[in-house]
Amino acid sequence: MNFEFTEDQIALRDAAREAISRHRTEPVPGTAPHDGELWKALAELGGLGLPFPEEAGGMGAGPVEAMVVALELGRAGVRTAYSETLTAAAMLGDDELFGAAVEGSRVVVPALFEPMRAWSPTPVDVRADGDALTGVREPVPYAAAAPAVVTTAATADGVGIFAIDNPTFTGARLDLAGVSARRVDGDEVLVQRAINLGTLLLSAEALGAMESALHLTVEYLKSRKQFGVPLMKFQTLTQRAADMYTSLELARSAVYYLAMTLAIRPDDAIGVSRTKVIVGKSGRHIGQEAIQLHGGIGMTAEYAVGHHTARLTEIEHTYGDTRYHLSRLARGVSEYGGLDLVS
């Protein structure tokens, strides 16, 4: 059991940090557009292929390394199709888009959400008859960047995976009727495995966002003065900052552990759900308190802290929220007795 980064992992972290700071240093508001420049820089680092085997065109590293990069993105609060590219690539099998995705010559994103339907990894209203799809995917992340898309559909023989080269979007909506799609080798096991990887990367991004939100809050408590003294003189605030720190460190342990787990057990659904719950709870806590402890400035688009909270909220709602994962876990709790984390 070892939670320390290796030297290579630290070097990767530094390289990612440096690439990010060269491109953009300020968090961006709202549902921000894909940052293509940054994405290219990450591609040049080999960042997009990290968890995939070299024979397939990847970098032959693993989920831990991909997590290291995602953490830096979250810390900086930048938006680029990182977790999306890796999640899509993980579903592409030996499709020709895989190479394009991991070398960064084409933005490829997963289209997995159905409009006005609670999250489920299993497609319901998206269906396929041969290569002919029907149904709608919405919202598709970073649709404005005109990405290629990987989606899933219910087929006669279970869940199918489909690649779509140049789809036409209406906003973030993709109507699948009549689009030209090709079926990719792979089934729902591969889909779930990709979503597991995606959940890890989003959780790492959330961890980075929590780190920055707490950092900003601590600095603000030191510098902002009211009643003639810095805010840190008020224990009601510092006690809450201490709780935020505790939430952060709990989330960190869970994210690092999930990365180590997926490196040896990429299908560990329970591990993924537990991490999403831990990160979800910590993220809510830190995100809300970070704004509150800033007062009015925390509400402004000009200031970064609220954007971290926005990102944490988006991540909470992607690939199943705390409620979804808790009910998934709850259904299984009678099947085992105590927990065992070390073996």
Binding site: S253, A254, Y257, R274, V277, I278, K281, A330, V333, L341
Partner: peptide
């Protein structure tokens, strides 16, 4: 139960870390 297990896991992993 599921939530308490998550809370415990987060704590135990932090102890180990």
């Amino acid at each position: 139960i599921a939530e308490l297990e998550c809370d415990l896991i987060a704590l135990e992993l932090t102890v180990l870390r």
